[in-house]
């Protein structure tokens, strides 16, 4: 019981829990699940934008996009590494992902039909991710917090490149402006859903906040995101697709309309536009690469035997 008190003392004092510290089983399991889902999201998240690398409309945009999608692979790796400090095995987490037993962020189950989607993903989806992730730089588990610092530093480029692309497109042709507005219309609500279900229905929030894995509730973060996005949308010259979106001087925040949670749950449970496609793509890369991984492992074994 001494160990448990020490754990609680470390967490309460806002110190970091480190891999070899004693920790409650629930804390470990919660972290493995959350970090794995986060890592999976980065890896699956390569696909919607990766879809556009071969067709990026300028060489500068191509370089930016390729670097960005590559960053996402890197972020996935930082996060898998953090999960492994808790005793998880990356190969096993990957199996869970490709067998559909472990989730990733539902936002990546939406398609990217135009190049404006690349910009809006940067602006809104990466923006929402940053809102979620910046507080995680101070999360109670040391390796997770450190991975998030690296991720957040790189994500800030992602958001800026997205917003810059949209500003450029808004200064272009009428067709381009329409493309941007269309993408904003499609991504706004799913972006709000990225913060998870309302606090009243979020089963994990309370314990996670007690353990300081999470530091803000879903609704707090969602509100912050809305408040940040509204002036950015104005500056950009696009309309956010919510007639109820209005400044509430009394609260000092924007009020916004009801989120369609049935849509959210439908996509989470597998019935989004791209769920099967995204998992199949990842599974295929994993399976097609098996002979390469085997070859390298076998080569290392032969070398070791010879040594």
């Amino acid at each position: 019981m001494d160990l448990e008190r020490e754990f609680e003392r470390v967490v309460a004092a806002d110190h970091r829990v480190e891999p070899r510290d004693w920790m409650p089983d629930g804390y470990r399991a919660t972290l493995v699940r959350q970090i794995a889902q986060h890592a999976h999201s980065e890896i699956i998240g390569m696909q919607p934008e990766g879809n556009w690398i071969s067709r990026a409309p300028s060489l500068r945009r191509k370089a930016i996009l390729l670097a960005k999608v590559q960053d996402e692979a890197g972020h996935g790796l930082y996060l898998y590494a953090a999960a492994e400090t808790l005793g998880a095995d990356r190969a096993e987490l990957t199996e869970r992902l490709v067998e559909g037993r472990q989730k990733y962020s539902s936002i990546f189950n939406y398609p990217t039909p135009t190049y404006a989607d690349v910009g809006v993903i940067g602006w809104l989806v990466d923006g929402a991710a940053i809102c979620n992730q910046v507080p995680l730089c101070r999360t109670s588990y040391g390796p997770y917090a450190r991975a998030m610092i690296r991720v957040c530093k790189e994500e800030s480029f992602h958001q800026r490149q997205g917003y810059e692309l949209l500003m450029t497109m808004m200064s272009g042709t009428r067709q381009q402006r329409a493309m941007v507005q269309d993408a904003v219309d499609r991504w706004w609500w799913p972006s709000l859903m990225m913060f998870g279900p309302p606090d009243a229905e979020s089963s994990n929030t309370e314990q996670s906040m007690l353990w300081r894995i999470k530091r803000h509730t879903n609704d707090e973060l969602r509100q912050r995101f809305v408040d940040m996005s509204v002036p950015q949308a104005e500056k950009l010259g696009v309309t956010l697709p919510d007639p109820d979106l209005v400044w509430n001087a009394e609260r000092g925040h924007h009020d916004f309309g009801e989120i369609d949670w049935s849509e959210f749950w439908r996509v989470v449970k597998g019935d989004g536009p791209c769920n099967q496609q995204r998992v199949a793509h990842r599974r295929r890369a994993h399976e097609d690469g098996a002979w390469v991984r085997d070859a390298a492992a076998e080569y290392a074994r032969k070398k070791e035997r010879a040594a």
Partner: peptide, 20 residues
């Protein structure tokens, strides 16, 4: 760049993207 998100292992995905 066609390998992006399709490489045999994530580390190799990053390596091929660097070369591209």
């Amino acid at each position: 760049a066609e390998w992006c998100s399709r490489a045999p292992e994530l580390e190799e995905d990053v390596a091929l993207a660097n070369i591209a």
